[in-house]
Write a protein that binds this DNA or RNA. Structure first.
Length: 487
RNA sequence: GGUCCCAUCGUCUAGAGGCCUAGGACAUCAGAUUCUCAUUCUGAAGAUCGGGGGUUCGAAUCCCCCUGGGACCGCCA
């Protein structure tokens, strides 16, 4: 094993940054940081068909947003670059040639059609699809023939029947029967290396010490070990994380779950700390009853051998709870700042910037009620813009219109008589007013609250009065009175 | 179909032979606080540890079989 811990994630920019990728990245990041190692990002963009630049940006932005800065990779460079596979293309040929030279690989002239037919017939006979090895023992004249026909050729790696076993950091000892693989392709007929090949070479060249990835790569590992042996490379240590499932226990997918970090989480008002904390708990636990961890606490506590072996279902309810929890831990100012970009209504946006202190006071009142930053817009709207509501809402459940009207009128009076609407002044005054009217506190307070907020659920009447202030409160109370009287 | 991986409350999980009449968290329900909602606090319900065999004085924990679920079987990554 290399003396320095070097791990990598190798995203392929073919789509948005995915929850599963984020979790793999996180575990790699934690593992590296824990041991003072390096976390590298290598972009696997050799499949020109599918990759695009916006995906790359989405992935890189997502990584930064979650607080996982990479030590080597795009934008930052590093001593083992380039970090884009597309720029590494020239690196692979010598290794392929070397393998062909040593008769550990050979050119295969089979056409895609032939191979598809072969696979199909194998499958119809109920046997596992596996390359026949037809081109492995081509004679020189046969090769000449193909070359003269300008048939294109891919390169296949020679797999001799044997057991391949390795000690997985998470799964323990895993063994595969390589005899079942068939000779697999390592270089396409257009000269592009295949994932198995480029991965092995890049990991070696980049001195990667540990390959920590999702369980879907378990079988690849056996192939990569074979390849590494043939190339005289020392294989890195492998660790495979269990998958994250949809509710129906299939591999987590965007069809069945919100999986895009940017669109489904960041844009929806989730906090990066909450997401990181939640994702860490998907498969890992500290062994204590603690569940709340900051990134740096995670780095301290993380142990690869405390990553479980069974898949976990993504529970968005718990994430939501955790996000609310993190929101509550933040200061009013932090929430207010973070919330600003979630306000889309122009009028409200303007109001918020014009009255920053008032905005802060409003946030203070709704703080405990938030689970997502995106809820702020809806929660604070009525602080700035007079609410619309049905007059029937003004009447508390066990009250009457007459009582409500009287209550509102006396509330107006109380408010006008107070110099300031501090919590300490408003509460006794209003309670006193209710007593004078011989109605329940609740009847009066409900009406006042609705008059101010226009909602059946909101912060309390006293808090609302003291934040909204004398002038505006009086206006809203009078509006309420008019609504009721107009009937 | 083949190979591999996995299996504790609805969900995330603790559990490395006796501390387990199985612990915690989310969700659920009830209560307290209360003008509503939320927060907070208290409590309840919820898992015969997938099933069956062993090993052992003793098994959720070790072994075997079965069942179930999943992943992978591409000139994608």
């Amino acid at each position: 094993m290399a003396d320095e811990i070097r791990v990598r994630i190798a995203p392929s920019p073919t789509g948005k940054f995915h929850i599963g990728t984020a979790r793999t990245a996180l575990f790699n990041y934690l593992f590296a940081k824990k041991f003072g190692g390096k976390f590298v990002v290598r972009v696997e963009d050799t499949d020109q068909q599918r990759h695009d630049d916006s995906s790359l940006k989405d992935i890189l932005d997502g990584l930064k947003w979650l607080g996982m800065d990479w030590d080597e990779g795009p934008e930052v460079g590093g001593p083992y670059g380039p970090y884009f596979q597309k720029e590494r293309l020239g690196l692979y040929d010598p290794f392929v040639l070397q393998l062909i030279d040593k008769k550990l690989a050979y050119r295969c002239y089979c056409t895609p059609e032939e191979l598809a037919a072969e696979r199909e017939s194998q499958q119809s006979q109920g046997s596992a699809p596996k390359y026949s090895g037809r081109c492995r023992h081509l004679s020189a004249t046969e090769i000449d023939q193909f070359e003269r026909e300008h048939r294109s050729s891919a390169v296949r790696f020679v797999v001799e029947p044997q057991k391949v076993s390795f000690d997985d950091l998470i799964k323990g000892k895993v063994e595969f029967d390589a005899g079942l693989f068939g000779d697999f392709v390592i270089q396409r007929s257009d000269g592009m290396p295949l994932f198995v090949l480029s991965n092995v070479i890049d990991d070696n060249l980049m001195k990667i010490s540990h390959v920590l990835r999702g369980e879907e790569h378990l079988v690849n590992t056996a192939k990569q070990i074979l390849l590494a042996d043939a190339l005289n490379f020392l294989s890195p240590q492998f660790g495979h994380f269990p998958l994250i499932f949809n509710k129906d226990r299939s591999k987590m997918s965007k069809r069945k779950n919100p999986v895009s970090i940017s669109d489904d989480y960041k844009a929806k008002g989730f906090l990066p700390d909450a997401l990181v904390n939640y994702i860490a708990l998907l498969g890992w636990n500290s062994g204590t009853e603690r569940e709340i961890f900051s990134m740096s606490e995670l780095i301290d506590e993380f142990e690869i051998n405390r990553v479980g072996t069974s898949p976990s279902i993504f529970d968005s309810e718990k994430l939501l709870w955790m996000n609310g929890y993190y929101l509550r831990q933040k200061s009013i100012g932090e929430v207010a700042d973070a919330g600003r970009e979630f306000i889309t209504n122009n009028e409200l946006q303007k109001a918020v910037t014009e009255e920053p202190d008032y905005y802060l006071n409003a946030i203070a009142l709704v703080h405990d009620r938030l689970k997502l930053l995106s809820e702020i817009e809806d929660q604070i709207g009525y602080f700035f813009i007079s609410p619309k509501y049905e007059q029937s809402l003004l009447v508390a459940k066990k009250s009457t219109e007459a009582n409500t009207l009287a209550a509102l009128k006396s509330a107006v009076k109380v408010v006008s008589e107070l110099k300031t609407l501090g919590l300490d002044e408003v509460e006794p005054a209003l309670r006193g007013a209710a007593e004078d009217l011989k109605i329940k506190d609740g009847e009066l307070l409900w009406a006042v609250r609705v008059a101010l907020s226009g909602r059946d659920a909101s912060p309390g009447a006293f808090e609302l009065l003291s934040v909204i202030g004398k002038e505006e409160s009086t206006k809203r109370l009078n509006t309420a009175i008019k609504k009721l009287s107009a009937r």
